[in-house]
């Protein structure tokens, strides 16, 4: 950062500045989840065997499918930016919609998965869960809070895309002003990236 940037706030857009702001925000998101990962690591260290047993009860298939969904949505997200940069607005809009739909599919899956667990009497503070022992209580506590917090972020991402979709439609986001789309993309990728860690840490404990 040795170069001196001759920038002023004179009403022209600062592309790098906007990106910088977004990345700083992403750092806060990383550390928000970081706090949960600290909890996770301590309790996993404390209850190695119990975590193993509890993780067996999670459906790896649903987890894997959801991983695929999010990875694919990251791809379509990136493609929608590339399409817009190449000037193909309609293709970009198409990919944005696909990204949104994949996000919704992810949440649908999550809903089914949570629903099954709750149906079996496994939810925070349930009598059945408490009877399973401390390690299980911690595992499912972490599971519900961490995937819940993550799902909340997916939901926020979908809402953001609704706005971006209309921004693109109305010409607020254009091929030479993609920074809003790019920043929403960054957010979406980060949410994906967090899932990349959540998946093995909850579904693949051996």
């Amino acid at each position: 950062m040795e170069e001196i940037l001759h920038k002023t706030a004179e009403h022209h857009r600062d592309y790098t500045g906007a990106k910088m702001g977004m990345w700083l925000f992403l750092f806060t998101e990383m550390l928000l989840f970081g706090g949960m990962f600290i909890l996770y690591s301590v309790y996993r260290f404390e209850f190695i065997a119990e975590f193993h047993a509890a993780a067996k009860e999670l459906d790896t298939t649903i987890g894997a499918v959801n991983t695929l969904i999010l990875l694919t949505s990251s791809l379509t997200m990136a493609l929608s930016i590339a399409a817009l940069q190449k000037g193909n607005k309609n293709l970009s809009l198409f990919f944005q919609v696909v990204t949104m739909l994949l996000g919704i599919a992810f949440l649908g899956n999550k809903y089914l998965e949570w629903g099954t667990k709750i149906h079996h009497g496994i939810y925070p503070n349930s009598e059945y869960l408490l009877s399973l022992g401390k390690g299980q209580v911690m595992f499912y506590g972490l599971y519900f809070v961490m995937t819940g917090l993550h799902a909340l972020h997916v939901l926020i991402g979908i809402v953001i895309f609704v706005f971006i979709f209309f921004f693109t439609l109305s010409g607020d986001v254009t091929s030479d002003n993609t920074v809003k789309l790019e920043n929403s993309g960054l957010y979406w990728h980060l949410v994906d990236m967090i899932w990349v860690y959540l998946f093995p840490l909850f579904y693949l404990i051996t």
């Binding site: 990251s74 993309g185 990728h189």
Partner: peptide
Amino acid sequence: SGLILYIFM
């Protein structure tokens, strides 16, 4: 996540 960061992001 490195791939996501490096390429997608």
